[in-house]
Design a protein around this nucleic acid. Structure first.
Lengths: 346, 346
DNA sequence: TTGTATGCGTTATCAC
DNA sequence: GTGATAACGCATACAA
């Protein structure tokens, strides 16, 4: 078959000018019916498609969105991507992926790589390391260069841009309230260190729920895990930590975990310790994924609606990109969480 | 701060020509030490970065790889992406994602969108619908237009290109042999319809393992599920099908499933039927994911090494892209599978 | 109705 | 040592 063909080649072949071809293909009325047909036929025959790169250069927009996420082998993030891709494609945009791997340097490098003309705007969720170092200059610079950013899930107030989040506080407060209203008297929480904004907020929701039930929080029941990174060694030590939690607090009858994996592991430990779920102890996790659905017993979770978050983020970004006025008004969309009750709660 | 700056603007600002600036920035010896320093200082100050799009247009290569996969919310595919991204970035390439959603049309459209200059080559895994319709013209056309393709996992012999696969036959034969050597006498298989090439091969491996143990296959023990698509209704009916399988064949003492989910569900059904795992019945799944690791009991699986597949595919593609000679020699890389023994087998 | 010229940002070639 | 020019592929204002 034939190689990619350009306007110039068609023009030469048909012995007309490039602009005639261009116009003919765009159905311009300037061009005679005759040549128009001729050109279009030829173009179709050779399967002509305008070169995206040339168009991007000319229009100064690439019609592609850069997405930077900490990790892709992760149910939540892949759901988000899926949502982004859905609306992006619907509106004629491509999606280009960069993984930060939770590393500050990779986040910066990836953004630089993409910011030099490859994309029109970013959708991103901040790497743990960046959150820890609290160094956000790369976001600021990107925005100052006129490239819009939409942050989702892991955001930071310091940066002014569009944001899509869930109400972590409310979601976890609901979850813990559910445990309490189900009769739990001693609810433990397994959470992350405070620099992860969502971990902090979810812990706060836990505390507020307790307060609403007039229960004084017991610091012994708050387990702050050092890192969310899922290396196998970490998992084993996590198991031991959780085991310690249960053994030192025999009265625990409810557990709220800020992510799915922590909850699943906690259930496993509890089961090994001979506890019956949900009779002796009930569990709720945050972030709904495959694990929750197929665990035994299936885990009740707070669903983040990752796909919707992705859709909202993409819509926000594209709307911004295609808006004429230069007015800078950033909006924050809050996606409602949903408590999915399964068999780990009564 | 400042907007994106171009060569032209620097030139104007410093009152030199564009080409002088260009050369100065590339440390050309043609340029005097003096102006070179001046230009470089100015460029650094204004954080100049060459525009990727312009470079792409000039060099006729974009340094980006297009990846088309059926689904991203899937442990295996996200692992592959992760691997692709790793080597791509290391070699200065970006990765752009298209999701086919197992649909033929979306696969075609996505490829067209990207093939018009946005990328240098494809890495892809074929959509189920495409496999079913056996319409591969879009692959042929892409290749004929000079755009290389690397296929992984779901491939098709009819198309000549680089491929990365696992030895599905050997992997499943090993798995089933394991069950047999563990003492299973009646091993069932839960597989897909034959048009999914990997499903077919894995079924064949099952049959060969039986043959090696001189067991005549019993068609009652071969359950061919209609679709791998994970809609919730499908899952329920799948459960019922599997339940039927067990009830009609009370002697089943081993199950091999061609994916993780089927295995997990089968385990659940077996447990509900009162069978003890792995004492009464043993399970092995194909495709290692989070589910296998965290199921109760944890599931023994055949790991596909998705990340490695992605790395191999990216390496194959980039090597091809950067190779000078025009010689067309396609290679197929076979990634070794690995049987990971967990608690669902003795 | 058709064609010419210009520009998007860059680099390479060649002239000064 | 510096600069003008062409080219990558396309669209478009303007000229013929």
């Amino acid at each position: 078959m034939k190689k990619k063909i350009t306007l110039k080649q068609i023009a030469r072949e048909l012995d007309v000018s490039i602009s005639t071809v261009s116009k003919a293909l765009r159905d311009s009325i300037e061009i005679s019916e005759d040549t128009r047909q001729k050109v279009q036929a030829f173009a179709k025959l050779y399967n002509y498609r305008p070169n995206n790169i040339a168009l991007s250069l000319k229009n100064r927009k690439t019609k592609t969105i850069g997405v930077i996420i900490p990790e892709i082998v992760h149910h939540f993030f892949s759901k988000v991507i899926s949502g982004i891709e859905l609306v992006a494609n619907k509106r004629g945009y491509n999606v280009i992926i960069g993984l930060s791997n939770e590393s500050f340097d990779k986040e910066v490098i990836n953004m630089q790589m993409l910011a030099n003309g490859s994309i029109d705007g970013f959708i991103l969720s901040i790497a743990k390391e960046t959150l820890q170092q609290q160094d956000y200059h790369h976001f600021k610079e990107t925005i100052n260069q006129g490239m819009p950013i939409v942050m989702f899930d892991r955001i930071v107030n310091e940066i002014h841009c569009d944001k899509v989040i869930i109400d972590d506080l409310k979601g976890s407060k609901n979850a813990v309230s559910k445990l309490l209203s189900n009769g739990c008297k001693n609810v433990a929480i397994i959470t992350t260190k405070d620099y992860v904004s969502v971990g902090k907020l979810r812990t706060q929701g836990y505390l507020e729920a307790l307060e609403a039930y007039e229960i004084t929080p017991d610091t012994d029941l708050i387990l702050k895990v050092d890192d969310e990174l899922v290396s196998d060694d970490r998992l084993e030590s996590l198991e031991r930590e959780i085991e310690g939690l249960f053994q030192n607090n025999k009265n625990i009858d409810g557990v709220f975990a800020v992510n799915e994996l922590y909850a699943i592991i906690a259930m496993k430990v509890a089961r090994n310790l001979g506890m019956k779920i949900p009779d002796d102890i009930q569990f709720i996790g945050f972030t709904d994924g495959v694990l929750s659905k197929h665990a035994t017993p299936s885990l009740s979770t707070v669903s983040q609606h990752g796909q919707e978050m992705g859709e909202a983020a993409a819509k926000l970004l594209i709307d911004n990109l295609e808006r004429d006025d230069e007015e800078e008004r950033y909006t924050t969309i809050v996606i409602e969480t949903e408590l999915i009750e399964r068999n780990s709660t009564k």
